[in-house]
């Protein structure tokens, strides 16, 4: 494996500094929301994680297209890495959302469009790994994985749109109190929100890069063995 690039080291250090910094900013410098109380603060990392996950999946689709065009294995490593890290961020978004929903909506799970779409996306991309594990050659894994990653990312808007439409047409069965936990953000909240978004995007890049290097290393090992 090639030596660790300086830029990656910079990403590592920045992530290690900025995550605690963002956490401190959120915990001590953002106002406590009037109705929901402290639990609302989970929101900053929750949305950022969902954003990073989505970004990872989109990137995986783009990298898949890159593989199909160039047929270079490096694109496949990127696609695979982005999906794995995207899955982790998606899981974080779902879990933190559930913890927020429990006191606010009085239930762990709501069949809300965003929540349901995220859960379906997790299932779609779990299937990606099942598909890969069933294929024998790295070439087939890369080629079919790329096709699947592209088709999957294409259906995500359709899924989201269909579930949202489903919800708006149906009568609301469980009323969720206080406009479903909607609130207005103050300038300080906005600042913390955008910093969290930036930090999680950086973290996504950092983790994907590390996972990519692992894929490279594993491939080299296999070729030598």
């Amino acid at each position: 494996m090639s030596k660790k690039p300086t830029l990656l080291l910079l990403f590592d250090v920045l992530s290690l500094i900025l995550i605690p910094a963002a956490l401190i900013l959120i915990l001590f410098f953002t106002p406590v929301e009037r109705v929901m109380g402290p639990v609302q603060k989970v929101f900053y990392f929750h949305v950022s994680a969902a954003w990073a996950g989505m970004l990872g999946f989109i990137f995986a689709g783009v990298a898949g297209a890159g593989y199909l065009i160039t047929r270079r294995q490096t694109w496949d490593w990127l696609s695979l890495s982005a999906i794995e890290v995207g899955l982790v961020f998606g899981l974080i978004a779902i879990l933190s959302g559930m913890i927020w929903a429990q006191p606010i909506w009085n239930t762990w799970w709501v069949w809300d469009p965003r929540l349901t779409t995220t859960a379906i996306m997790e299932l779609i991309y779990l299937a990606y790994f099942i598909l890969r594990s069933g294929l024998d050659t790295p070439e087939a894994r890369a080629r079919l994985g790329a096709v699947y990653a592209i088709v999957s990312v294409g259906t995500v808007p359709l899924t989201f749109f269909s579930i949202r439409l489903f919800r708006t047409i149906h009568p609301v069965v469980i009323t969720t109190g206080g406009e479903g936990g909607a609130f207005n953000m103050s300038p300080r909240m906005l600042l913390a929100f955008f910093i969290s978004l930036a930090v999680f995007t950086l973290l996504l890049a950092d983790l994907v890069w590390h996972r990519y290097r692992l894929a490279e290393l594993q491939t080299q090992n296999k070729q030598e063995a």
Partner: peptide, 22 residues
């Protein structure tokens, strides 16, 4: 896609149902 895997046709529902949701 699924016919090329070792598990063959077992895989199809797992790939198809989540993508067919819309």
């Amino acid at each position: 896609l699924s016919i090329q895997t070792r598990t063959r046709d077992v895989l199809l529902p797992v790939l198809l149902y989540p993508l067919a949701l819309p």
